[in-house]
Simulated scan of single mutants.
Amino acid sequence: MSRSITLGRVLMVGFLLVLVLNVFFFRSESLTKFNGFWALISPDEVTCEGRVALLPISTPSQNSNLNSPKIFLLETSGRATLNPRQACAIESALRFTNLNVFVLIRSPFLNLSDVTTCHLFKLSKETNTTTTNLYFREIQPDRDLKDLPFDCSMFKKKLLQGHKFYATFLSDALRLAYLYNYGGWYGDLDFIYLRSLAKENGSILAATGGKSNASYFLTNAAMKMERRHPFLLEYMEDSVRAFRGQARAEMGPNTLTSSLKRYCNIPKSIQSLRNLSDPSLCSNIRVVPPQVFHPIRLHTMKFLWSKEELTPAFWNQTKRDAWAIHFFSYLTSSKEVTKNSRKEAYSYLAPIYCPNSFASVEEF
């Protein structure tokens, strides 16, 4: 009886050992095949299936390229995929800004079964050791907001209560955290980027406005800040005070505009923001005019989907001083792109600035 019990134990141990070894080798194969952070692979080896794990941006061994000029693009919805218009923003930034492009996603992995996401991943540093400057990283809110004004129970409680706009609120907070900790550019995922941003010095905030050029205010859709700039701390503190978790833009343009006025000690008159085109006037912060990031503004948004044909002269004028064009996705995401380049801004610009993304799907 004792011999049969001993034999049974040996067989059980052997079975468990085989099981452990199979799991180990399967896991190793998965990492080699799908996880570029563990083993760099060529684009041809990436199959559009399965998923690839992402590391957080704060992993020390992955931060060497954070010292170079860079732009942060955030996807905070929790999805593991990128839609074609978001991919267009990423591709145009990769092609034209001459910056390291960090795409930060609130998901621990990318879903490579999505064609658009897979083709973007094939362009990333994880599959091209020297030919690209595109990086995917995971957003970890608790870690990424740690030791900043947003790292307080009051803000976190209201953040969760405001579930309708949770992704927007989180994005508004995280962009400031990344710029404070690392410096560089931030841009929304509904821009098309048109030119190099690598040689723009100092800190840059973007103005937009209403029908009158006199009605300047600032937008938090695009900005560049030097690392640890003290203005960012004040803006974060003002954002926490202003935050109620009820309206979409509580930490956005109005809070940013009032924070800068107080920080720079400038008059209440909105027109006075024009004077900050000279960075020597306020802590090396420069305000660029609306035509730089918003050559098409909210009140002229009809030109993004026009009833009339948009002439080459219109586009030459629109792009003359522009660094990027904003598409206001919170208002336009449901608008159809029929690939009519004479009436649709996406159909005119995307084949030039993000051709792969534009061609990746039938419905853009």
Rank of each mutant, 00 (worst) to 15 (best):
N128W: 07
K156V: 04
S64E: 14
K122D: 12
V101Y: 06
S58C: 09
K158D: 03
N111V: 05
E138K: 13
T116Y: 07
L120N: 00
L148S: 10
S61Y: 07
A87N: 09
L123R: 15
E75H: 02
N98R: 14
L160R: 14
A80D: 08
F169Q: 03
L55K: 14
L74P: 02
F96D: 00
A80K: 00
V103P: 00
N83M: 09
R85N: 03
I71T: 05
Q140Y: 03
G78S: 06
T131A: 15
L160M: 11
E75Q: 10
S92G: 11
I57F: 05
G78W: 02
R85F: 04
A93N: 04
P60G: 06
L160H: 08
R79V: 03
K156S: 12
Q161I: 04
I105H: 01
T130F: 14
P60F: 02
L170W: 04
E138D: 05
S124Q: 06
A80P: 01
F72I: 05
T81A: 04
C88A: 15
K146W: 01
Y166C: 02
L110P: 00
S58Y: 13
H163V: 10
L99F: 08
N67W: 06
T116D: 12
R137A: 11
F165D: 07
T131N: 15
T76C: 12
T129R: 15
A89P: 05
T129V: 15
L120Q: 07
E126P: 03
K146R: 12
F136G: 07
E126V: 00
K157N: 10
F102E: 01
Q161S: 12
S171V: 03
M154I: 10
I105C: 03
K125E: 11
L112I: 03
Y135W: 11
N98I: 09
A53V: 13
Y166P: 08
T130A: 14
D144F: 07
V101A: 04
E91L: 02
R85D: 01
T59S: 11
L54W: 07
L170D: 01
T127P: 05
P149R: 09
C152Q: 09
L123H: 14
F102R: 00
F155Y: 14
L148V: 02
T132Q: 09
T130D: 15
V101P: 00
D144L: 08
T129P: 13
L123C: 14
L55I: 09
K122Q: 15
T97Q: 04
L55Y: 11
T117M: 11
S113H: 14
P149G: 09
F150E: 04
N67F: 13
P60M: 08
L110E: 04
I139P: 05
S64P: 01
K156L: 10
P69T: 05
D147P: 00
P60E: 13
E126H: 15
E75S: 11
T59F: 12
T117A: 10
I57H: 01
L112M: 05
K157P: 00
I139F: 02
F169M: 04
K164N: 08
L54E: 02
L66M: 10
P108G: 01
L159A: 09
N63V: 04
N65Q: 14
L148T: 13
P108I: 00
P56F: 02
L55V: 09
K158V: 06
D142W: 01
M154C: 00
E138N: 10
H163R: 13
S153Q: 11
K158Y: 11
L94R: 06
E138I: 01
L148G: 05
L82M: 14
